[in-house]
């Protein structure tokens, strides 16, 4: 089943070019194909959920967009800059939250954020101001001089989110950012990022395998076995697949092609929900 939206043709709410355009991207690890002709776009001001089961290719796609993995086939454009031509410069409008925690545990929150600000060419004064602004929004300002080691998982994630927003990016990429968090922390982060997309006109690409993190009006790209199997508004994707909710649609879309059934896919989705 393929419900595809053409990549990179429309400007988003923020106007101008799309925040992210992925066209015909393939990648293989030896003989194993991780991505096969993937294409979609993320508009400015939109929250796009990249939904796929484990092993679908989400992290590989993030690796390619962030240049941690070399792009061989296809094109990726970030705010109109072609990754192949602009190379490292194309990463400038990008804010990132990785699946793995990436804060330095031995440094304080402030020291971690200052380090990142220096990498993004921000002056100390500007960085200081932005650090407090972003941490305040996430109710973390009072923890600014605490060592990261002393923070719990949810608070560390908030600091990582604050860091990703420090340089006012146009595109925010989050790779399963709620893994290991409790329900309340997850809910807060999901809501905050939705607000950011709306208020700041930020393009958001949120990779997840957790269906409850996708809202009906979100843009949705469903990735399965390295291919985009559906895309569009979440509610429309569900409707076009003939299901009442996204749970059922996801189960149907990710059911194993050979010998699999929607029921077995649904079981997988239920598993994802429990995870």
């Amino acid at each position: 089943m393929q419900l595809s939206r053409q990549a990179g043709t429309q400007g988003g709410r923020g106007g101008g070019t799309d925040a992210l355009v992925v066209r015909g991207v393939s990648h293989a690890y030896g003989a194993r194909k991780a991505l096969d002709g993937v294409g979609f776009s993320v508009s400015r001001g939109s929250f796009t959920a990249l939904l796929g089961p484990n092993g679908a290719g989400k992290t590989t796609l993030f690796g390619l967009v962030t240049r941690l993995i070399g792009l061989r086939t296809g094109t990726i454009e970030i705010c109109g800059l072609n990754l192949a031509g602009a190379r490292a410069k194309a990463l400038a409008p990008l804010g990132l939250v990785f699946q793995q925690p990436t804060l330095d545990l031995d440094l304080t929150v402030r020291q971690n954020l200052f380090y990142f600000a220096a990498l993004r060419n921000m002056s100390r004064a500007t960085a200081q101001k932005r650090i407090i602004e972003e941490l305040t929004r996430l109710d973390m300002a009072e923890r600014v001089d605490e060592r990261v080691r002393n923070l719990n998982g949810g608070h560390r994630r908030r600091v990582e989110l604050a860091r990703a927003l420090l340089h006012d990016p146009a595109l925010l990429l989050l790779d399963e950012p709620t893994v290991g968090l409790d329900v309340e922390s997850r809910r807060r982060i999901v809501a905050h990022v939705h607000d950011l997309a709306e208020e700041r006109g930020l393009g958001v690409l949120w990779a997840t395998h957790l269906i409850d993190e996708v809202l009906p009006h979100d843009d949705l790209v469903v990735l399965n076995r390295g291919r985009v199997v559906a895309s569009g508004k979440a509610v429309e994707v569900a409707r076009e697949v003939g299901e009442d909710d996204l749970d059922g649609a996801f189960a149907r879309l990710t059911a194993p092609e050979a010998g699999g059934t929607a029921e077995s896919g649904r079981a997988g989705a239920a598993e994802a929900w429990r995870a």
Binding site: R67, L91, L96, F98, L103, L119, R120
Partner: peptide, 11 residues
């Protein structure tokens, strides 16, 4: 631990 990624994704 992942912090190398922060450095490597600097523009």
């Amino acid at each position: 631990m992942g912090s190398m990624r922060v450095l490597m994704t600097t523009p």
